[in-house]
Design a protein around this nucleic acid. Structure first.
Ligand SMILES: NC(=O)c1ccc[n+]([C@@H]2O[C@H](COP(=O)([O-])OP(=O)(O)OC[C@H]3O[C@@H](n4cnc5c(N)ncnc54)[C@H](O)[C@@H]3O)[C@@H](O)[C@H]2O)c1
Ligand SMILES: NC(=O)c1ccc[n+]([C@@H]2O[C@H](COP(=O)([O-])OP(=O)(O)OC[C@H]3O[C@@H](n4cnc5c(N)ncnc54)[C@H](O)[C@@H]3O)[C@@H](O)[C@H]2O)c1
Lengths: 231, 231
DNA sequence: CGCGCTTTGTGAACACGTGCACAACTGCAT
DNA sequence: ATGCAGTTGTGCACGTGTTCACAAAGCGCG
C-alpha cells in the first residue's frame, strides 16, 4: 500500500453529493446495516450506481469487490474528506423570521454546525433568547467570531443589508458565507459564498410547471446539486 | 421575421440563472435604468458576459447590437419564459419552525407565489394564524389544492414525515414540490422535485474551508445554481 | 452617407460531468 | 483447487455547460 499521497482534488459535483451519501450512511448505520453496495446506496440517494462508485473512488479504494462498502468506514472517510471531524461553529447575522427559525433548529448542531451566536442591528431584538442562544448586537460580531473561532457566517438580513452583513462577517474574520438574501454578494478573493434563494427555486419549478401544460410528462434530469463555492 | 416557432428547450443551467437576471433587471427598472449591456448585467449577476448573452439568446434575439438590452422588455420576456405571467399559489405542509417562517415571509407573495394555505397534522397547530393565513388540518389539503388550483407544494415537516407529506401533496394534485427536509423523496414520474438542504450547504462550505488550511487561497468556480427538477 | 465605436449573437474549442460496459477482484461453495 | 456469482474501479464515449473570439449589426457623428 502506497504512502498517503497528496490530497486529490474532488470534483465539485461530487462534493455536493457526498453530504447526501453521508446522511444516508449514518442512517443505515443506526439501522445496524454494516455493508452497502453502490447499487443500494444509489437507490437510496436517487442517483446512478456508477456515479456513486466514481464519487467514492475519489476518496480512495475503500470498497470490497463482490461485497460492497463497509458503512462505518465510509462514514468515517466521507466525514474526514468533508472536514467534519470537528465542529464548525456558525454565526447568524439577522435575527428576523428566518434567522430565528435557523437558530431554533437543532439539526445544525446535531450535524456539527452549532450556532455560536446570532446578532442583529436592531436594539429591540438584542437580548431575546432563541434556541438557547441570546441575540447580541452586531457590534459584538468580531468578538464572537474570534473568541469562538467561527469561520462560517450565515446572512439572514433583508436584501438591502446583506452586503453590509457580509462585509462585517469578512472583516470579523469569517471565510465562508451562506447567504439567504436574494442578492449577489461581493466578497474578497478567497472567501467562499453559497447562496440559498428560495424564490429562485420556486421560479425554476414554475418554468417546468408551465412547460408541462400541453407537453405531457417530460423528464428533466434527476435531482443533483452542483453549485460553486466562489472564492 | 419568421412566425413564432416551436418553443426552444432551454438548458437547465440557463433556467437556473434566468431568475437571477430577472431579479436584477426588475431592480434596475425601479432605478429608471432603461437599457443594460450583457457586460453590465453580468457584473451585477456575478457571471461571465458571454454566458449572459448565450442565456438570453435562448429567449430570442432581443438585444440591440452596439446598445444592449431594453430592461423592461427583457423583464417581460424572462417572465414569460419562466411562466411568471400569472401567480402560482403554493401550499405549505408543516407549520413548525420553518413552515411558519416561510408563511410569514412576504417575499414569496411579492414574487408571484402567494401562500394559498398551510397545513399541519398536529391539532394543536391548527387554527393559529401566520402571515394572515390560518393553519388548517392536513386533511383539508386536497380541498385547498383543488379549490385554489395549487400546483406547487412545500414540504416543511420533520424528515420522518416528509415522504408522507409528499405522497399527500401528489395525491391532492400538486405537480411540483420544494422539499426542505433532508431526505430523498420518491415521487411518480412527471412530478418535479427540488430540494433545499441547508446542512448540505454547510457541509460543502466545510469541505472548502478545510482545504483552505495550508493550501492558501484557492479559487473554486463561481456561484451558479444548476440543479435538476426531476420528473 | 460612410466611418468608427460599441455590443450582440454564435461557432468552435475546451472543460466538466455522466453513464455504460467490462476487466479485475473477492469470497464462497463444492 | 477451481468455478461462479457478485461487486468494485475505471476507461471511454457522450452530453452538457463554459468561455473565447470574432463577424455581423446598430448607432451617432461628421
Ligand atoms: N423568512 C423566510 O422564510 C425567507 C424565505 C426566503 C428568503 N428569505 C430572505 O432571508 C432574509 C431574512 O428574511 P426574514 O424574513 O428573516 O427578514 P426579517 O425582516 O424578519 O429579519 C431581518 C432581520 O435582520 C436585521 N437586520 C437588518 N439590517 C441588519 C444589519 N445591517 N445587520 C444585522 N442585522 C440586520 C433586522 O433587524 C431583522 O431582525 C431576507 O433577505 C429574505 O429575503 C427569507
Ligand atoms: N427550522 C430550520 O431552520 C430548518 C433548517 C433546515 C432544515 N429544516 C428542515 O425543515 C423541516 C422542518 O423543520 P422545522 O424546524 O420547521 O421542524 P418542526 O418540528 O418545528 O416542524 C415540523 C412540523 O411538521 C408537522 N408535521 C409532522 N408530521 C406531519 C405530517 N405527516 N403532515 C403534516 N405536518 C406534519 C409537525 O406537527 C410540526 O408542526 C425539517 O425536515 C428540518 O430538517 C429546518
Amino acid at each position: 500500500m502506497p504512502v498517503e499521497r497528496v490530497r486529490r482534488r474532488i470534483p465539485e459535483a461530487t462534493v455536493a453529493r457526498l453530504p447526501v451519501y453521508l446522511r444516508i450512511l449514518v442512517e443505515q448505520a443506526t439501522e445496524e446495516v454494516e455493508c452497502i453496495s453502490s447499487e443500494g446506496l444509489a437507490e437510496l440517494a436517487g442517483v446512478n450506481a456508477a456515479k456513486v462508485r466514481k464519487d467514492l473512488s475519489y476518496l480512495g479504494s475503500y470498497g470490497t469487490r463482490g461485497v460492497g462498502y463497509e458503512v462505518a468506514f465510509l462514514v468515517y472517510q466521507i466525514r474526514r474528506e468533508l472536514g467534519l471531524t470537528h465542529d464548525w461553529p456558525v454565526v447568524i447575522v439577522g435575527a428576523g423570521n428566518l434567522g430565528q427559525a435557523l437558530a431554533g433548529y437543532n439539526g445544525f448542531g446535531e450535524r456539527g454546525f452549532p450556532v455560536a451566536g446570532i446578532v442583529d442591528i436592531e436594539p429591540g431584538k438584542v437580548g431575546s433568547v432563541i434556541g438557547g442562544v441570546r441575540v447580541r448586537h452586531i457590534d459584538d460580531l468580531q468578538q464572537i467570531v474570534q473568541s469562538r473561532r467561527v469561520s462560517i457566517g450565515v446572512v439572514a438580513t433583508p436584501p438591502s443589508a446583506a452586503q453590509d452583513a457580509a462585509d462585517r462577517l469578512v472583516r470579523a474574520g469569517v471565510t465562508s458565507i451562506l447567504n439567504f438574501a436574494p442578492v449577489v454578494l461581493a466578497v474578497p478573493r478567497g472567501i467562499s459564498v453559497r447562496k440559498v434563494d428560495l424564490a429562485v427555486e420556486l421560479q425554476i419549478l414554475s418554468y417546468y410547471e408551465q412547460r408541462r401544460v400541453g407537453v405531457g410528462l417530460q423528464a428533466v434530469g434527476s435531482n443533483d446539486s452542483t453549485r460553486g463555492a466562489s472564492a
